[in-house]
Design a binder for these strands. Structure first.
Lengths: 112, 112
DNA sequence: CAGAATCCAACGTGATACTG
DNA sequence: CAGTATCACGTTGGATTCTG
């Protein structure tokens, strides 16, 4: 268990959830993977203006937390596919809620 | 609109939601305020091992994002009450979902 | 009581260049 | 293609002390 998650257990279950999914790009990754596995490059483009360096780290953390599965196909050129684990799939409704709330928030507080 | 929220708008609504509620203690604050207004001291004790310095900053951000209302009663000793705004109340179901997911996560990945 | 001031360490995030 | 190496930096969260 990652340290930040372990610390959250000392506070409240909601902090645990935030510790797992609260990082930048993480919930967007989950959102994109809901439609099926994606290769690293596909995921990079789908998520947005994220650098490979950063996306890799977020994926590693999601993997460590059991949310994402990383499948390496030993071939040239390399092929690595990311997918949601069963646990990751349980985040589906949460992603939808966050997506809807964020959209509502933008509707009532427009970007200036 | 806070800068981190504005940046999130360039990515995805889910990132906007995370930008608003993703900070440490924030969703725990919302959870505690669901049962009604709390004074600063009460909130400090209810949230957990948070320092006044940090809790104040998180509350200011939640206030700036329109989630929390801060009511000052001009008296001695000072009395300041925090409550959820209508927007903050719309986070209710999200808090419940996060709480449930976090609890499930702990059940399947016990603290070691 | 409800914070503000000051200071700081750690972390999260990012740009750029390079590689098996 | 899917990263890694290196470097850099702003923000976050925190400890401590002090105050109207």
């Amino acid at each position: 268990m990652r340290e930040s998650v372990r610390r959250a257990t000392q506070v409240c279950p909601v902090e645990v959830a935030i510790a797992v999914v609260g990082g930048a790009w993480k919930m967007t990754v989950v959102k994109q993977l809901r439609d099926g596995p994606l290769r690293f490059g596909e995921l990079t483009r789908a998520v947005g203006p994220v650098t490979p360096r950063v996306l890799t780290r977020q994926l590693r953390e999601l993997e460590a937390d059991g949310v994402v599965h990383r499948e390496v196909y030993p071939q040239v050129p390399p092929r690595v596919e990311y997918s949601l684990t069963p646990l990751g799939q349980t985040l589906g409704s949460l992603v939808e809620s966050l997506d809807a709330w964020g959209a509502d928030y933008l509707a009532q507080a427009p970007v200036r």
